[in-house]
Amino acid sequence: MALGDSPPAPGAAGAGRGGGAEPARRARRVPAPPRFGTGRNADRLAPYVLVAPAVLVLVLLRLVPLFLGVNFSFTGDGDRDGAAVGFDNYTELLRDPVFRTALKNVGLLVLLLPVAVAIPGLLATFIYLRVPGHRLFRSVYFFPAVLSPVIIGAIFNLLLAFDGPLNSALEVAGVGPVDWLGDPDIAMFTVVGVHVWATFGMALVVFLAGFATLDGTLLDAARVDGASLAQVIRHVIVPGLSRTIQFVFVTTMIGMLTSMFGLLYVMTGGGPEGSTYLPEYYIWIQQGRMNRPALASAASTVLFLIMLVVGLAQIALLRRTGRED
């Protein structure tokens, strides 16, 4: 309505595109004709109206559910359904060893992040340095990124089964079988390893894009100066790619915290001994199987806070590097 009532201010739409600077200046000098007496108000309202759909979507689909979730986390389950229980759910979460394991695993993922970034980084470096067969490797490395986590999980379930092919090969090599998915000290590393295998192709592509911006003459100069491969990587490639590396750090972290559900579901189901739980898997189990939606809301709130801290830290990091540039 407001839009229909107000004719666009002359120059506001046309000036930038076709008219250039001169008509725009002229347009500013001529006041908009006050038709219907509402033009100014409509002008003032227009931006709000234009952003309203986006704000509504954000408020209705993001903020309201978030608020409801946080609100539910202070209510009870079962017999205490709907009753205010204060911080009871949060104390229960802290006491629950499974949730504590889930949080510890988040910490483990953060610790393993450098490995998850280094692998695609190194492989991309080799491709960039044109090792024999680099064209083949480029497509082969990307291949797992197009497979669904469920399919990948099923494949690795077969490969890593106790009496599966990998253990048979180990046996031939004289090493005893390893219970890749059944040993609580190993299972989480196995799942993270499979996740890295499944997703490093995407990071590799980002690294290759970063390499495209690298100044080739610096590499040539380093070679002429007799730098070894390790020295080239350390003193030329890594500094030249610092922004790409940071970007890959951020996206890999988000991927690890939010996209491992499928793999966990198929490969371990949170086990053995609850050792491969992550907060999102815990929420799913409590909400559905244990019929504890309020407890799940509390766990969701905790996960939200963790993501908030990680997100803010990442934004701060990116801002700092932005300033450095």
């Binding site: 539910f72 209510t75 359904d81 709907g82 019929n291």
Partner: peptide, 13 residues
């Protein structure tokens, strides 16, 4: 405010 008023029900049917 949320702690004090924790209301509604997560399991509402």
């Amino acid at each position: 405010a949320l702690v004090l008023t924790g209301c509604g029900s997560a399991g509402s049917d």
